[in-house]
């Protein structure tokens, strides 16, 4: 599925949260959205999800304006991971992941075995197999976050929009989520993730650096993640060096501040 945003703006209470953002994403693209607090990252994600309607401009999936798509149809086109996960839930982990299959209900071409396979593979991908019967209310923050990610994976949509997917995860599970995102891209699905950790953004194909609702830079990680533009956007001296142990970059806040 081709995802396009054309000159998208979102204005609320006379404040432009997102302005003139244009993106064009092909199947398999993995895009990191970064920027300081209040740069419009989450708003942009909601606009791409069709959850917010742009004040100007448009978002299209394969040329169709998302605001014309039914809620049910949208749910089979894109999955969305919000920033916060509900805690006080008496459903168990498997039941919550099964909720990702809701949009396929009453769809004749979807079989119960499809649902089972999707749910099981999502649980396996997020290392949740042993936790299946546990109530979500009894999980730790990181386990709850993995359950929510598994739910979006079980949705099996061509587009995944993830707002801070690695929040609350330990370092091992952060890497696991990055691996899952990589394999989703490999199977032709588009992933857009809002990230706070700039070092994680180096693992993506493209990086969108937002500042004050607009795009400050957009391109490959090596082009966008440079000391000069990061220092300017984050208003804090930031250094970018070659990673000493592996390929890629290492982003560090400068000690001089």
């Amino acid at each position: 599925m081709r995802v396009s945003a054309t000159d998208v703006c979102y204005v609320t209470n006379d404040v432009e949260l997102v302005c003139d953002v244009s993106l064009d994403l092909a199947p398999g693209d993995r895009v990191a959205v970064v920027g300081p607090n209040g740069a419009g990252k989450s708003t942009l994600l909601s606009l791409l999800a069709g959850d917010l309607r742009p004040s100007r401009g448009s978002v299209t999936y394969d040329g169709t304006d998302v605001s014309t798509l039914a809620v049910r149809h949208l749910a089979t086109s894109r999955a969305f991971l919000g920033q916060r996960q509900a805690e006080d839930i008496a459903f168990n982990v498997r039941q919550v992941v099964e909720m990702g299959r809701y949009a396929y209900r009453d769809d004749a071409s979807n079989l119960p075995s499809d649902d089972r396979r999707a749910v099981t593979s999502a649980l396996e991908a997020l290392d949740l197999v042993g936790l299946e019967p546990r109530l979500v209310s009894s999980l730790s923050g990181g386990e709850r976050q993995r359950t929510a990610i598994a739910r979006t994976i079980a949705q099996e949509t061509p587009l995944l929009l993830l707002d801070e997917p690695t929040t609350a995860l330990d370092i091992g599970h952060q890497e696991m989520v990055l691996r899952v995102i990589r394999s989703l891209g490999g199977s032709g699905r588009t992933v857009v993730a809002v990230l706070h950790d700039l070092n994680m953004a180096t693992a993506f194909d493209q990086v969108v650096l937002l500042d004050g609702g607009g795009v400050a830079a957009y391109g490959a990680p090596e082009e966008v993640l440079n000391s000069r533009s990061l220092t300017k956007v984050y208003e804090h001296p930031i250094e970018v060096v070659k990673h000493p142990l592996r390929q890629g970059l290492l982003v560090l806040p400068s000690m001089e501040a």
Binding site: A49, D51, A70, V71, R72, L74, A75, T76, R78, A79, F80, G82, Q85, A86, I89, A90, F91, Q95, V96, M99, G100, Y102, A103, R105, R151, Q155
Partner: peptide, 22 residues
């Protein structure tokens, strides 16, 4: 099944395909 989704929050229920507004 749609009411089940509401425990996750209105917005989550909607993104999963339950048209809360209707």
């Amino acid at each position: 099944p749609g009411l089940d989704l509401l425990v996750l929050g209105d917005r989550e229920a909607r993104t999963l395909g339950f048209d809360t507004r209707r």
